[in-house]
């Protein structure tokens, strides 16, 4: 047998054994549990069914989050306490200021553009006869990894030496508009950030569209009818009926994308690895933790990410409460 086949076989064996062990234990516990008498069955069931989740969540999220918070006040080797030195570094180091600026740009621009485009598409698609094909195609990038998307868009931004034919689609378009020797797009300071954002937007618009489209379809028909009888059409109908009716969903979509974009890492790592002034918090966190092995700074960056998420979530909850109160 070829080495590839032997290796593959042993990998599947490892997987099969693990799955068999996991579900085997589960089956035995369930069998034994169902044999217990009524009085003790309820506490047993509670323990068996909740136990694994509680253990995994505690060991995998709660304790690590606390430990990371503590590490953020310690030095690179996680030994001595250094007070706020790591946070001071996050907010004063010149490179980090660029990183913070980029992250803020990402967090503001990508949710707004994705949601805006998604809303536009949702409205337009609602007025179409055969909506399922365009919907599926625009939604499709959701299934593609950020790494895959980066390769797809890397091809669009591909640079060719002056004089030769263009390989990249963007350069070809520029050439059509008589730009002699299109630049290496991904190296253009500051604006390259927006080229990376396009990749994220390309993926998220489908999400925004699908969710908003569902919300639009859920608007009661009589509301739309009444507005139309009052003479509202097109833009008017959109502004004074559609948008107010789906306001809650709009907020949820916007904040969901915002939280996602704060943690974006794959695109930047794959496209530029944070070079050429495109670094963002999440990738810098990875670099500090696992490339520089500075546990203190890496943890501080993670805490900053976490603190960045909090206000968005609180805003989200307040909005949901308000919608419920109505």
């Amino acid at each position: 047998m070829s080495p590839f086949l032997t290796e593959t076989l042993s990998k599947f064996q490892q997987m099969g054994t693990a799955l068999a062990a996991f579900f085997g234990v589960l089956l035995i516990v369930f069998y034994l549990g169902s044999k217990t008498s009524g009085r003790i069955q309820t506490p047993t069931a509670r323990l068996v069914m909740l136990g694994p989740a509680v253990v995994l969540l505690t060991a995998g999220l709660v304790v690590p989050a606390v430990l990371t918070t503590i590490s953020s006040f310690k030095d690179a080797n996680n030994k001595k306490f250094v007070g706020l030195a790591n946070f001071n570094w996050v907010f004063t180091n010149p490179d980090n200021l660029v990183t913070l600026r980029n992250t803020v740009l990402w967090v503001i621009i990508t949710p707004l553009v994705s949601t805006g485009l998604g809303l536009l598409l949702a409205v337009l698609i609602d007025r179409m006869k055969h909506e399922s094909i365009p919907k599926s195609l625009i939604f499709m990038p959701m299934a593609i990894s950020f790494v895959g998307a980066s390769i797809i868009w890397g091809l669009v931004y591909e640079y060719s030496e002056p004089g030769g034919e263009q390989v990249g689609l963007l350069s070809q378009l520029a050439a059509l508009f008589h730009v002699a020797d299109p630049p290496n797009w991904i190296l253009i300071p500051f604006w390259n950030n927006f080229l990376l954002m396009v990749i994220f937007i390309w993926i998220q618009v489908g999400f925004a569209m699908v969710v908003l489209s569902a919300a639009i379809k859920a608007i009661p028909v009589d509301v739309v009818e009444a507005a139309m009888l009052d003479g509202a059409t097109g833009g008017r109908l959109f502004r004074s009926v559609t948008v107010p009716m789906i306001r809650g969903t709009l907020v949820v979509v916007l904040t969901t994308i915002m939280i996602g974009v704060l943690k974006v890492f794959d695109i930047v790592r794959t496209m530029t690895n944070g070079n050429f002034g495109t670094q963002v918090l999440a990738n810098e966190m990875y670099a500090q933790s696992f490339v520089q092995f500075d546990a203190g700074r890496g943890s501080a960056l993670a805490v900053v990410l976490f603190l960045g998420v909090i206000p968005v979530v609180i805003y989200n909850i307040i909005q949901l409460r308000r919608d419920h109160a109505r």
């Binding site: 709660v62 690590p64 990371t68 590490s71 993670a302």
Partner: peptide, 17 residues
């Protein structure tokens, strides 16, 4: 609590885990 844990970025958990 479980619901709230959705908010914790993976980044918070990686190193200790």
């Amino acid at each position: 609590t479980c619901f709230a844990l959705q908010v914790v970025p993976l980044q918070m958990a990686l190193l200790p885990l």
